[in-house]
Every structure is written in C-alpha cells, then in structure tokens.
C-alpha cells in the first residue's frame, strides 16, 4: 500500500459527503464543517508471508464548530451516525478502492481539536485499512 494513494482515495470518498470539505492531508487551516485524512498511527508490515499483506491504522478527523455550539453537536451527530448519507462509517466502508482491499471504521473519539489556533469540536475516526504488502 502506498501511503499517499491510500490517503487520497479515503479523502476522495469522504468528499462525497455533501457539505463536508475534506482534505487529503492535515490542512493548515479550514472552515468547519471540515475533515482531513491524518497520517497513520502506525503501519503494520508482513501480515502475510512474502510481503503479501500490510495493515494501516489511519485517523480521519472531522471538525464542526465551537465546542459549546448546539448546531455543532447536531451536525457532528450526523457524521458519527452508524448509517445515513452523512455517516462517515457508511460512506467510507461502502467505497470501492484500488489502493487497498478493505476499510473498516473501528471507533470514534471525541475531543476539542485545534486548527490554526481555533478550537473546534471534533471527532476522530479510527480507520483499519488492510491491503497488499507489495503491489
């Protein structure tokens, strides 16, 4: 799996969510609601013999607005839904990718996230990505 290709394809797929502006890398600044594919927490090599498979744990961050804003909470709820047109899990897991074989959204962690000195309410999705070790 090529890191840049994986991040690009995940970003492309997430960008199909209406109203969500998605970056394929951590952006220097953004206007919420926005999201980005972050660098992986780790890449695990050699999940099969002969470079057959690798695994990547990739964060995907969504920010929606001020922490104390009710609209931000309601908006974030749609992205965190298990299903629906704005559900990050549903949209990402239903994608067709060539840079890897399988994507599963494992969990979500909620935290205020600082972007360009602005603090937004955010959710970080953990993506479990499995693909070929050598292409």
């Amino acid at each position: 799996m090529n890191l840049a290709a994986v991040m690009d394809q995940v970003g492309d797929r997430a960008n199909t969510i209406t109203g969500l502006r998605v970056f394929r890398y951590p952006p220097p600044q953004l206007t919420p609601p926005g999201a980005w594919v972050d660098y992986p927490d780790k890449i695990e090599f050699d999940k099969a013999y002969s470079r057959g498979a690798d695994r990547m744990i990739l964060p995907f961050a969504v920010v929606v607005g001020k922490v104390s804003d009710r609209t931000a909470r309601n908006r974030l709820g749609l992205y965190c839904d298990g299903a629906g047109p704005k559900s990050v899990k549903q949209v990402l897991e239903s994608g067709v990718y060539t840079a890897f074989h399988e994507l599963t959204v494992l969990d979500i962690e909620f935290d205020p996230i600082t972007v360009a000195a602005n603090v937004y309410m955010g959710a970080v999705f953990t993506l479990d990505i499995f693909g070929k070790g050598s292409s």
Partner: peptide, 22 residues
C-alpha cells in the same frame, strides 16, 4: 524470520495469503 516463508499446495503459491504455517 518467518516472513519470507514460501508455501504452495498442488502447485499454487499461497504464500501471500498465509500468515502462519506448521
């Protein structure tokens, strides 16, 4: 290291699908 292990069955190389063998 075990990562380079080669294994085939009936002439088909299955190595890239295998993560353990005995």
């Amino acid at each position: 290291h075990g990562k380079n292990t080669f294994i085939s069955l009936n002439g088909v190389n299955l190595s890239t699908f295998v993560d353990t063998s005995d």
